[in-house]
Design a protein around this nucleic acid. Structure first.
Lengths: 158, 158
DNA sequence: CCCTATTTAATCGTACACGATTTAATCGAC
DNA sequence: GTCGATTAAATCGTGTACGATTAAATAGGG
């Protein structure tokens, strides 16, 4: 099963972008953020900002640590992003009373008010994909498995 | 089939990150670039740079315009990226003789030499995903359909 | 042939991602 | 309790993505 491309250089021609699932994932992700850019324009949210708001809508407010675990993004990505949400008046940031290391992030009324548009955006993206909801859920399940496999393989090297 | 969340606010609770295929795509794409960061470290390539090299390995050299169409990335992303590949000695950039608007991009010997490692990286990513090749191809097909649907929907607004 | 419309790269500004490092708070073994 | 280890955010540097704009080259109708 192990292929040595050095011994069979002609096999390299079989490895093309067209058959690489990683490129399909990468390219679909770019298409997702492009799509949401349009549909979220009225809210002023970018797609990653929208994901943070999703977590806050679901939880009603939580810590940056929890957002980081949920979205698999680290503090160096989330800190400036959440600060921007704060300046837009959509969230409030404050240190946690019990543990001052933690940052509480809570949606404001203005932030909560965007939830309707947010839900409509999610439905619009499902519709635009041209796939049935059932197929999309199957796709989602497979992607989750791939993501877990890749992240475990990446972590294993540490 | 059309849902008005304003009339049924309780339905918004059904719209969660867990069921959103867009988040699965986005998050899997982050996992892909994280995984390749490790495996491509020895080549000094980032994942997007690797994709450009894939196009050059397949074509033997082409124009920026063709790379842009193949990868669905525009010149504002590709120009600095390909300039970096040039300073790393992996590609040569030159204006096309027939049409001076076009930029020819050709792999150097050093660039061609990375192809073996590049093919091994693609195989490693397939293995790390934990899915069979057949499943990965099915996944790829579905993602292609979703990407096309999303990009058409995004373009339709123009 | 000329002049406008189109096409292609490049440039600029904004916003992610993430590795590496720093700082401050908490934990825990003793 | 104290101090070294751990944890959480923030900071910094590098490298994408992409909309908007610019500059240069080509195409094409009169």
């Amino acid at each position: 099963m192990k292929i040595d491309f050095r011994d069979n250089p002609e096999l390299m021609e079989q490895v093309t972008l067209d058959v690489m699932p990683c490129f399909a994932i990468y390219s679909a992700a770019n298409a997702v953020t492009r799509f949401y850019r349009r549909i979220l324009a009225e809210t002023g949210l970018t797609y990653p900002q929208y994901l943070v708001m999703m977590v806050l809508w679901e939880t009603g407010g939580t810590t940056m640590r929890a957002i980081s675990e949920r979205l698999l993004l680290d503090s160096s990505t989330l800190t400036p992003l959440i600060k921007k949400l704060e300046t837009q008046g959509l969230v409030a940031r404050s240190r946690n009373r019990e543990d001052e290391r933690l940052l509480d992030v809570v949606p404001t009324d203005a932030g909560l008010a965007l939830r309707v548009t947010g839900c409509e955006a999610a439905m619009a993206m499902n519709a635009a994909s041209g796939e049935a909801l059932e197929e999309l859920q199957e796709l989602r399940g497979r992607l989750d498995k791939v993501r877990i496999g890749l992240n475990e393989a990446t972590a294993r090297v540490d």
